[in-house]
Simulated assay, not measured.
Amino acid sequence: MKYVWVLAAMAVMPTPAVAQTRCFMDSLGNTSCREAQQDVVIEPTDSLATGPWSWSVAAPTPDDVTIRLTAADAGNTVAVSVGKRFAVELITVPSSGYDWADSDVPDFLVRSGNFSGPTLKNQLQTDSVEGEQWRVMTFIASEPGIGELVLVEGRAWESAVREYRVTITAR
């Protein structure tokens, strides 16, 4: 038997493939349903991560970026080329007031862009801006140098809750 899998507030609920409605569960366990916009049928052997329809959306990083840094690169030393654009791709929850901001940027780095977008495909199919979002910050090394780039995540009215540190070596 085939099922339609509906991603709803961190829970995946199977419903029969013949269903014409999509149901969502809020954090209190209340369920609301509406007409389905698009059903995705996944065979029982398919994985949500590797199946025919991936739930993830890539970070909205510009095509001219030469190096993409992620949360996994925190604490590392990364070599970049002078004059080339690189990006730091992090996830935040702006609907709750959280966002990433510069804390300490070495003098040889120039901020060249700030981009955001959804992390999941179901965020593209609804008007929702809730949940995790990508924050992509791009920089260009204007001259050779070595320094630590520090970004902080938090709410404007509170202290930072997370830090992202990476040492940049520009050549």
Rank of each mutant, 00 (worst) to 15 (best):
I140F: 00
V65K: 00
I168C: 12
M13S: 12
L48M: 10
P14D: 10
R162T: 07
P106V: 11
C23R: 08
T92R: 00
D127R: 06
D46L: 10
T92F: 00
V161I: 15
P106W: 04
P106Q: 05
K121W: 04
E130Y: 03
S81C: 01
A17G: 10
V80R: 03
Q37D: 14
S159G: 04
S54W: 02
Y3Q: 12
P44D: 15
V93S: 00
Q38T: 07
F115W: 02
T138F: 03
G51V: 05
C23P: 10
T70K: 11
G145W: 08
G51C: 09
V41G: 08
S95N: 07
V65G: 02
V161M: 13
T31V: 15
T15Y: 12
T77N: 12
S116F: 05
W157V: 13
D107T: 13
P16L: 14
G29H: 10
Y164G: 15
S142G: 10
P14S: 11
E43D: 11
W100H: 03
V4Y: 05
Q20V: 11
W134N: 06
V129N: 03
D64C: 07
P94R: 04
S142T: 12
R135M: 08
G75C: 11
W157E: 11
F24E: 15
F108L: 06
S128Y: 04
I146W: 01
L151C: 07
A87C: 02
V136A: 03
R155G: 06
M25S: 06
A17H: 03
T126A: 15
V80L: 07
P52V: 05
L28H: 08
F108I: 07
E153G: 06
A71Q: 03
G75N: 07
F139W: 15
S81W: 01
V57M: 09
I67M: 09
M1P: 08
T77P: 09
A36M: 14
G29I: 12
R171P: 07
D104T: 09
N114T: 06
D73V: 10
W134Q: 08
E148T: 13
A58F: 02
C23N: 12
I91F: 00
L69V: 11
V166R: 03
I42F: 12
S56Y: 02
G97M: 04
M13E: 10
L149D: 10
P118W: 01
A71V: 02
V129W: 00
W157M: 11
V93Y: 01
A8F: 05
V78C: 04
W53C: 05
W55F: 11
G83I: 02
A72D: 15
V129M: 06
L90P: 04
V152L: 14
T77C: 14
V6I: 14
P14A: 12
A160R: 07
V41A: 11
A79G: 00
W53I: 07
T45K: 13
S103A: 10
S159V: 02
S54F: 02
M1Q: 12
M1N: 11
K2I: 14
N122A: 07
S128K: 04
R155H: 10
T169Q: 14
S27Q: 05
T70W: 09
V136W: 00
T169C: 08
F24S: 14
G145F: 09
S116P: 00
C33M: 13
E153S: 12
A59L: 03
R85P: 01
W157A: 13
R22Y: 07
E43L: 13
